[in-house]
């Protein structure tokens, strides 16, 4: 009987890194979106936060797409 510690370790590390990374990224995106809009903010910085938010969401969407790819493959 052999226990594949390497595979278990990889699963542990990958799950941890991906989860924390994705949750962090997504949170940055929604926080950025929630901050845009209120009065007093300059046009330019608002546009910057918004596009930053969309970059975060795009990366998360890519991760979901990769997830689906992994399921299908």
């Amino acid at each position: 009987m052999t226990i594949d510690w390497a595979a278990l370790g990889t699963v542990f590390g990958v799950s941890l890194a991906l989860t924390v990374g994705l949750v962090g990224l997504f949170t940055l995106g929604i926080v950025a979106l929630s901050k845009r809009g209120p009065a007093g903010e300059r046009e330019g910085s608002a546009a910057l936060t918004t596009s930053g938010a969309y970059v975060c969401f795009a990366l998360c969407a890519a991760a979901v797409a990769y997830g689906i790819y992994v399921i299908v493959a």
């Binding site: 941890l16 989860t19 924390v20 949750v23 997504f26 949170t27 929604i30 979106l33």
Partner: peptide
């Protein structure tokens, strides 16, 4: 253990990042 640790750390992280954000505005995103 794997999922629990990942969920715990990412919960901490997301609370920290969204500390000053409006909870109502972010909940739709979540």
């Amino acid at each position: 253990l794997v999922a629990g640790l990942a969920a715990m750390l990412s919960t901490r992280l997301t609370y920290r990042i969204s500390k000053n954000a409006d909870a109502k505005a972010t909940s739709t995103g979540y």
